[in-house]
Design a protein around this nucleic acid. Structure first.
Lengths: 351, 351
DNA sequence: AGGTACTGTGGGAGCGCTCCCACAAGTGAT
DNA sequence: ATCACTTGTGGGAGCGCTCCCACAGTACCT
């Protein structure tokens, strides 16, 4: 945090032109040095750099933005109220990943909440003004109009968790299919014969993929898929409790449950306890997310971990590429614009 | 989120000039309408507004910033690693207050972490580039160079929790003195005779003020201040435990403790339990912050609540005033540049 | 009638950059 | 020697605003 050069003398900040005069070169040359163009001789570069240091020159962002038509800023848009943002570690993990990756850059990250209608209105205005070069979108519901707005405005964007298999935006996701698969394979591997699944909200694409993974694991192991062992949940504790109750009624002989989330698993656990089932002795239980709940449950819950921080990093990478290519939000080509990161099964004593 | 006018037709955004042409007026007039100048006739204003709506005009922020030499953005600077930011409700409450107050404004809020040296470096660069019109500073340590940098760059700033009685920056604080006072008065009012105080870190000004309040309450009630009843802590649980142990050794007859924070109180509670003292029967306990810890302690902890969200609001108000006055970080006049907000004693069963 | 003041308006100048064209100087093939 | 590139450099034009001066028009005094 050293103070630079002669800055402050006059209160006015030095301009490119002044640096150029001081270094005895033209304006264009200083600009090239500042922006790291290779087309500058070593001697000239050194002279310019000296002048920059002496004057304490810092480029004027507004002027640059105006001339170059870019802002060097991107937004992380959270279409949720702030409370959820702070409550769920998911967001802070994403933020950490993005932040880490961003620190190598000149880019500025803006955090924008769009939970209320009011905030959404502001966001729309903000995007229309093109105040950011790109957008990172986390936790988007299937019917959210935000992606369309982005596409219409031709703003590069990356979404975490595609809304469907045909997601038009670039996306980053964890391998929901593979994660579910590994969970079920693990249960079968431990000798469980009747594995039930409490799903997440099925309007969430990731939840669908988990069901697919569940089915595939059973099929590949030679088990028929019993549709009555699949019960829809909604990611909530109460939903997990109810779903588990129904499953126990329909298939009292089940000996394992794969829940769509840790919270759901917590609900299921209560219902199991209520029915006098012991975990894992009578029924093995596996959750999804590897959240704090999983670690603190009694017994500690086996769960599928997603590399959330890495997902944040991957999102940023994709976005910066798009921005560099000046590509709009909707993919034109069909390149690898959907990154899928591997999950990891964290085995604890519930299974 | 309605889409505006004919925007998108060409991919290019309309400019002021185009709006002017459409409305049949000059560039200056459109600018006046956009910026809400009163010096425009009703008819003209209506015509311009119609043209703006038809073209879907949105001002170019960069051009405005360049011409007007302002950014319409302010930063909330957190000189802590992100982890603490998410862990402590203090920050999110401040953020909520600021956000609420800001939504009436055109201003943009940036959240900047400056926990690591690397991040601090970036921040310094950022501020030097004058990319924000003002800065909100939370949780600043006494020896932090940031306030000086702000003053030197002549950037308006408001600090939460002044660093001393002679704080040069505008500041917002809660009434630490009064809060401590009310806590001690409460204890005396319940018939306690020997009230100890475990302080916070005494290099934090607020902690000093709490000691002052503690002393004043005793004096005004006609109790002599026993210096051996004042034991320095450091806001941590371990510190509270140790301080309590020392107090019990020196003054085994004490019947009440006012702790500098809830966390400290939690530590004190352990030491008291360990020494076989019952709370509140043998020793009454009062904390500070009214955090989640206070509510979940056994027994629930009486604590001093600070209106944090309101503090955020107040900070923003002060800052916006300063920005409007184009005043630098250091106060020139001696107006009411130090807001102090009242605290509230939340009485629970620990006292 | 002439002055004075105020209101509303148009448009020039300029904010500090980037982009790009022009051009000088050097390099090597013909 | 000529031509064809390449490399490094200077500086004009222009990005889309705000600021401010100039001026027309109206109103109200002398």
């Amino acid at each position: 945090m050293a103070s630079h050069g002669t800055r402050g003398r006059s209160g006015r900040r030095p301009t490119l032109e002044e640096v150029a005069a001081r270094a005895g070169v033209g304006r264009g040359t200083v600009s090239r040095v500042i922006n790291g163009s290779p087309r500058v001789s070593e001697t000239t570069r050194a002279a310019v750099e000296a002048a920059v240091a002496e004057l304490g020159y810092v480029p004027n962002t507004a002027a640059r933005a105006l001339a170059a038509n870019r802002t060097d800023a991107i937004a992380l848009v959270v279409p949720e109220p702030e409370t959820r943002f702070f409550a769920e570690p998911y967001f802070s993990d994403i933020l950490r990943g993005v932040g880490a990756e961003l620190s190598d850059t000149e880019m500025q990250l803006l955090l924008i909440f769009a939970g209320s209608d009011r905030e959404r209105q502001r966001l729309a205005q903000y995007l229309a003004a093109h105040r950011v070069d790109g957008v990172l979108l986390v936790s988007v519901h299937a019917d959210d109009p935000l992606p369309d707005l982005l596409a219409q405005l031709e703003i590069p964007a990356v979404i975490s968790g595609p809304r469907s298999a045909a997601e038009a935006l670039a996306s980053v996701d964890s391998d929901n299919y593979g994660g579910a698969r590994s969970a079920v394979e693990h249960l079968l591997g431990r000798g469980r014969r009747t594995v039930a699944h409490i799903t997440g909200r099925l309007d969430v694409y990731g939840a669908q993929r988990r069901v697919d993974g569940y089915r595939a694991a059973l099929r590949d192991a030679g088990h028929p898929v019993d549709e009555l062992l699949i019960e829809p949940g909604d990611f909530t504790e109460e939903g997990g409790r109810r779903a588990m109750a129904r499953l126990l009624e329909r298939r009292p002989g089940l000996d394992a449950v794969f829940a769509g989330s840790d919270v759901t698993a917590a609900g299921a656990r209560q219902a199991l306890r209520g029915a006098g089932r012991r975990i894992p002795d009578d029924v093995a239980l596996v959750g999804y997310d590897d959240s704090a709940i999983a670690r603190h449950m009694d017994p500690p819950l086996t769960s599928v971990r997603q590399p959330i921080e890495e997902m944040g990093r991957a999102m940023l990478d994709l976005l910066l590429t798009d921005i560099a290519d000046r590509r709009p939000a909707v993919s034109r080509g069909l390149e690898r614009r959907h990154a899928v990161l591997p999950t990891e099964l964290v085995i604890r004593s519930s299974s």
